[in-house]
Nucleic acid binder design. Structure first.
Lengths: 336, 336
DNA sequence: TCAGTTTGTTTAAACGATTAAGCATATCTT
DNA sequence: AAGATATGCTTAATCGTTTAAACAAACTGA
């Protein structure tokens, strides 16, 4: 591999020291009083040799890499993929590059990702934290590394975060269902102590209670992350047999999709037999028959905001930023 | 930010030079004949101080970063997201990290991504090349940088690649449609000189010809990448009006999805009025009514193979590897 | 006993950039 | 004319590793 052109090559060609070259190429020629003629000769040489700065060397010296570490649950999940794309686009505007890792909602995988990214000296993290990551996030905070949590956060930690107002989202969705005449509404969520899930559940419960629904009719199925398929099948099977359930509210994108498979499997008619509200939006929702009503997160805003906040923090100009964004309920055909 | 522990810190603590520490922590203690006692003391100190090597410094010195640059058309597209996930998982096994960029099928965006990644000294590239990227790929080859193209390639360049046998895929799909009694089969493809698209078209055309279909009934709609929605709507609108078209074969995932929207819009009944075959698989295909028959790419194999080939090339042990994989036709309800 | 080997360690250069500090000249100022 | 100031450039340290080469001490064998 032909070795790359370095500052030294330019310096040699022009007949000056590398210092001058560095100054010029970093636009410090005024400040550092570099002679006009030398400036142009350096510029020309750089162009002729097609010089490209070695970011690695620069990073080592400067102590910063212009790199953001992004940890999501699973980049193959359309919700996170879309988010990642937004973050990538936003970051590149500021000359930052993004390294993405998938944690699979697994704390130890997440930890090894954090470690890998730390060794690579990322300047900051955007993390969708998995259950049990409190400690590792805390340790990042202690190291005073810029971190911003997204989608979820840990209430006991004073981190920056950008999230959906999950409570309000499910509260409104539930209220909407009740408004359409549903009474026996069930929620399907992940079994997880994470705040986003807890808040979604709380939104549902409190909306039900506020409308005076009998406490016995408040029912949340908390599904294990690794057994979604099986448990969903069971739930929908039972639901088909004893028909008093009016409506289902799904707590995430992946649960919605899995739920739709099970609904179709069991030939449950939507919305005649059951009203359904999904989470996050997905092309698959569009082709379900009828198209699914769902809670939409402001992905664009979430991604951009998280990058903005993180970069502010990296540059040291940031103060605490705990952002809660508002959902939108996209009404379509799946509620009676 | 508390500064990180370096080799020097360990060396000081143990009272030896950094060289010894480096040897030990890289497992060269036998080869470099480091004393047993010193070895254990270094190990202990490293553990106590929670030493983590600085990959940036190491990269600078070694000239390799253990980083792979991945350029896809759009990471938000489920096909590429899934592929990216597989590549990420495979790479991490070998202690490589992946930096992903989205080119939007745009050569100049792709070029600036390549440049960014080059400055960051990635050890190799996995690229889904966009139209007009021939030159930039060629220049990577000239620099003897490990590159592997995926999904498509440039026949005139001697690159490594891992792709689907696109010709065979559409040939079989078309033959399948003809076998089900379709005669007037149309294909919807991107307007693109890229080989994958050309091969998909050729597969369709030759299958039609081989079965003796009238040349006038061989019809390919070549759609502009940036006007998919509008053009698709027009095609399906016309198709609804003059009903002699039997079947549609879509050439990509995104086209399939866009097509399904248009088909629903125009209330075309599948498969009664029209048989449909999609490309690549997508959750949305499952919920279309009826579920879509489609050409499935061996994503897992594609991703793993590309990483394997790339790493071999990086390590210098690789020879030319031009891999063509076989599709699978997933038969479901969308063909009469 | 002494050259030769083995064992264990240090030294120092290198990777490619950044940047504080120093060193000449030239130009003012009075 | 002498000191001050401006101008233009170089020197060299530094970031944290890796690694060839040198070095020192202990051991070997005849």
């Amino acid at each position: 591999m032909a070795k790359k052109v370095s500052l030294k090559d330019i310096a040699n060609k022009v007949g000056v020291s590398t210092a001058l070259v560095s100054y010029v190429l970093n636009g410090l020629e005024k400040e550092k009083r570099v002679g006009q003629e030398v400036v142009t000769r350096i510029r020309e040489a750089a162009r002729d040799l097609n010089y490209q700065p070695n970011q690695i060397a620069r990073s080592l010296r400067k102590g910063s890499t212009n790199t953001i570490g992004l940890i999501v649950a699973d980049i193959a999940n359309p919700f996170f993929a879309h988010l990642a794309r937004i973050i990538e686009d936003e970051a590149i505007k500021y000359n930052y590059v993004v390294i993405i890792g998938s944690s699979d909602e697994n704390a130890s995988k997440s930890e090894s990702l954090v470690e890998t990214l730390l060794n690579r000296q990322v300047d900051g993290f955007i993390i969708v934290p998995a259950e049990g990551c409190n400690r590792q996030v805390e340790s990042l905070l202690q190291k005073e590394l810029p971190v911003i949590l997204i989608d979820r956060y840990f209430p006991e930690l004073a981190t920056n975060f950008v999230i959906l107002d999950n409570y309000q989202a499910t509260y409104e969705a539930t209220t909407y269902l009740i408004g359409r005449g549903c009474r026996k509404i069930e929620m399907i969520a992940y079994k997880s102590p994470l705040i986003h899930m807890q808040e979604r559940m709380r939104g549902y419960r409190e909306a039900m209670a506020a409308k005076g629904i009998d406490e016995n009719d408040i029912c949340i199925h908390e599904i294990d992350y690794h057994q979604v398929g099986a448990q969903m099948g069971k739930i929908m099977g039972e639901l088909k047999r004893n028909k008093d359930t009016d409506a289902i509210l799904f707590a995430t994108n992946a649960l919605s999709i899995a739920g739709l498979y099970a609904i179709r499997e069991n030939k449950i008619r939507i919305p005649e037999e059951l009203s359904v509200i999904g989470f996050d939006g997905n092309e698959a929702f569009d082709f379900f028959d009828p198209p699914l009503t769902f809670i939409q997160q402001p992905l664009e805003e979430m991604g951009k905001e998280s990058v903005r906040v993180l970069l502010e923090q990296i540059k040291g100009t940031g103060k605490a930023a705990q952002v809660k964004l508002k959902h939108e309920l996209i009404r379509r055909g799946s509620c009676r």
